[in-house]
Design a protein around this nucleic acid. Structure first.
Lengths: 258, 258
DNA sequence: CACTCGTATATACACCTGTATAGTTCGTTT
DNA sequence: AAACGAACTATACAGGTGTATATACGAGTG
């Protein structure tokens, strides 16, 4: 009976002397720490005040976008978006864990939204780069370089796309696949424009677009994290690879026609 | 002051009445469940008894290979090898969590070993398929089909390689990259043999090999989890893509020579 | 036999996780 | 002014995680 009581009492003692930092409500301390990160979180994050001022209807203290931004910021040290914990994100943005549910049902749902945003952003970058120089000759180079430059951009959107390509069972891969398809479609249109402009027939532009897209993303994924020189080298390699594909498609089209 | 004391006492009370299950060994209950899964683990896994009987020197109860096998088995529902927990693997193989450390320092170390094994296995499959039919014409088709067939093989080695390609920060990607390089090297040798046999010069065989390898893996990753028909379609697409690359390399070589 | 030593286990600890429940704050509506 | 309801917090719980420490078993050599 003595022993029995001891067993019940002991954890209390241990908890007590270990917890001058911890006690105050089991999670009270954690809350304390989370309140600390409220400050840094709100200060470091985007612009929650703007949303506050713009939308007069409610306080609208934290937006879904804030959560996504925090997740991206948090991502640099971690591996995959879905490996972030709900609490981690909430802590970074300075809200109680449960508030997360107001904006997303899951971390996975946030991840899908993030993939969407990443794809849109990256497509914008490429499109912009492509518009800047419309000569067929260095269109490839311009696009590939624009893509590769995004690898050490401040916003880590590309990394998300690259990393999430082959992970996450269900709606995840679909989301990335959807984004890749958008890239392919834009590239196919571009290819068909080139065909019309130069008169060079090309075998199956859709397939060429797919091959190029997948290849660029694969090379990008491989180049990610490598040194600047190594990455420049891989950029050149990618450009040659793309030229091979396009030359092959045109050559096969010629052979098929003759 | 009353409040202060209250704060210190309260968690003790809460812990106490919450812990009729918890106190008296904190993990005692869990251990009970883990012992249950010992049985199912040993029965479900490969053949630990064989190792026991064959190696008379020691009990040799659990080998590193057993751990790796268990991890692979466990992987089908999970996403990435590194997302498996040490305890999960130990539970599956029927050992105490700490015993894991006898074989690997980390789950990541196991993952690297697994990637190694997966690469070796897959290269074996492709090499074997390539040897079966040595005519240049359908060498591509044979290899690609062999690769794609591995996607629903019983041993999930390919999936590991595909999934781990773009995840895990440090030694991880290196491991996968190393395996991909082996593939590239073998393919480059093959390409150079073809060049010598057919007399068709090819631009930068190493780069062609790299492009093809990356493309096949990218398409494989995209095809993984898709339906059989969808996968067959993607196999055909991949074959055409490869032919484009090779035709392009040869065409560019001709143009460069002339 | 006793001894050591490699191998595996048992227990514990401190921490983190998602989520349930209840409560607080505060703008909007009646 | 009172009630409502949205946004958010506080607390707690029941689990899971990696790892430290101590212990047990069982073969090999003295």
């Amino acid at each position: 009976m003595q022993m029995y009581i001891y067993l019940f009492i002991q954890p209390c003692i241990q908890l007590r002397h270990a917890s001058l930092v911890y006690v105050g409500g089991c999670e009270g301390v954690v809350v304390g720490r989370e309140m600390n990160s409220v400050d840094s979180g709100l200060a470091g994050s985007g612009a929650p005040e703007r949303a506050d001022a713009a939308d007069g209807r409610r306080k609208a203290q934290v937006t879904a976008q804030d959560l996504m931004d925090a997740a991206v910021d948090l991502l640099e040290s971690h591996r995959s978006v879905s490996s972030l914990s709900l609490r981690e994100i909430a802590r970074a943005v300075g809200i109680a864990p449960n508030t997360f549910y107001r904006h997303f049902r899951d971390v996975d749902e946030l991840a899908v939204a993030l993939i969407d945003q990443a794809g849109r952003s990256l497509r914008g970058v490429i499109r912009e780069a492509r518009q800047r120089l419309s000569l067929e000759r260095s269109a490839i180079r311009t696009s590939v370089e624009a893509f590769m430059e995004q690898l050490d951009s401040e916003d880590r959107y590309v990394h998300i796309l690259l990393r999430e390509m082959s992970i996450g069972s269900d709606a995840f891969r679909e989301a990335v696949d959807r984004e890749l398809t958008y890239f392919e479609d834009e590239l196919r249109d571009e290819l068909e424009r080139i065909v019309q402009a130069t008169g060079q027939p090309t075998l199956e532009p859709a397939l060429v677009a797919k091959a190029i897209t997948r290849l660029v993303f694969a090379m990008g994924a491989a180049a990610d994290g490598k040194s600047v020189e190594r990455r420049a080298e891989m950029t050149e390699q990618t450009i040659v690879m793309i030229k091979m594909i396009m030359e092959g498609a045109q050559s096969l089209a010629r052979k098929g026609a003759s």
